[in-house]
Design a protein around this nucleic acid. Sequence first.
DNA 1: ATTAGTAACTAGTTTGTCTAACTATTATTT
DNA 2: AAATAATAGTTAGACAAACTAGTTACTAAT
Lengths: 183, 183
Amino acid sequence: MTDVETTSRGLTATGTDEVTYWYGDEPSDRRHRSKAVLEALRIYRAAEVAMRRRTRDSMSMGENELLVLRYLLRDSTRQVRPGELTRYLGLSTASTTAILDRLERSGHITRSNNPADRRSIFIQATPRAHAEVRQTLGNMHDRMLAAVIDMTPDESAAVVAFLQRMSDAVDGVAVDTSAVDSP
Amino acid sequence: MTDVETTSRGLTATGTDEVTYWYGDEPSDRRHRSKAVLEALRIYRAAEVAMRRRTRDSMSMGENELLVLRYLLRDSTRQVRPGELTRYLGLSTASTTAILDRLERSGHITRSNNPADRRSIFIQATPRAHAEVRQTLGNMHDRMLAAVIDMTPDESAAVVAFLQRMSDAVDGVAVDTSAVDSP
DNA sequence: ATTAGTAACTAGTTTGTCTAACTATTATTT
DNA sequence: AAATAATAGTTAGACAAACTAGTTACTAAT
């Protein structure tokens, strides 16, 4: 049981549990399984959100600052410019500037200039940022890797296919008011 | 080019991409598959975040207001009280009150009193909230359901197990807070 | 009957975003 | 070559949404 207080209540409202069970793969079985899968997805999402909040709190930092740090730390060899972060975060350039100001003030990033274009600058995460993020996110990534490394090819394929279908399902939301997409 | 970068760093601890491939399930295959799975998960997450932003924009409503509506609509027979929403959102009671104020002003919820305890109230989503969320989220849920309904029992089991392990992996983050202090 | 505890709300403050205007630099046009 | 447009990032001011602290109304415990 997770300590993600979220929805244990809201979730258990499985109204349609007339347990007329049957042998084989009946429609009702399938519906049941589908529900379980989506339920598991929702629980994962909730866990993720809660994790993010804990991390943010423990580093006393906003969501977007953390995202920027993680983005920078992902590949510290690349030269990242503010505009790239602006596109990544989907914010205004002004907000990006403000975020970078805060991160610079707190000693998590430094700005340096781009010799090739003197309008623009480069952003680097400091060693301290590396250390802090490592410390806080700990070995979450390692744990995740450990949790998938033992999967069989079939299982992996099933999971990947599932996630892709979910991404597609979610991508079609609110693109337009009268969106009836054709297949 | 995705704008979601890959974390090639943490994973490639050993540079074993010498493709000495083999028949069967070699360690390098497994590492590859694991990477693909986590990558798929990250893409899904990004899709979800983007969807949420679109939805929020299109309903001109904050993230938390939307979360409240979805929570309420999940099971409209239940009587939900503000305190529950406070715990669900992980905010202060004051913020919850403010959110409910906004939702009430915009006609998406109503407050009614709890006859059993006159300190507390019940929150209901209005028909209009139902309609709007339905319209905006469209048939995302239907699409999601359609995307899982054809899975075999094995596939479902694999996916559910995967998601549970991921939830566990993520639940262990930042419980300890021995922070790194000032430089 | 008094005291403590709980549920929700109010007031005032802080934080983080936005838009719009601005500086500095580079690219394009004439 | 000079003028004009475009681009990168910053600054200023406004507003929305979160927080803390304190209040009101009620319930539970002694």
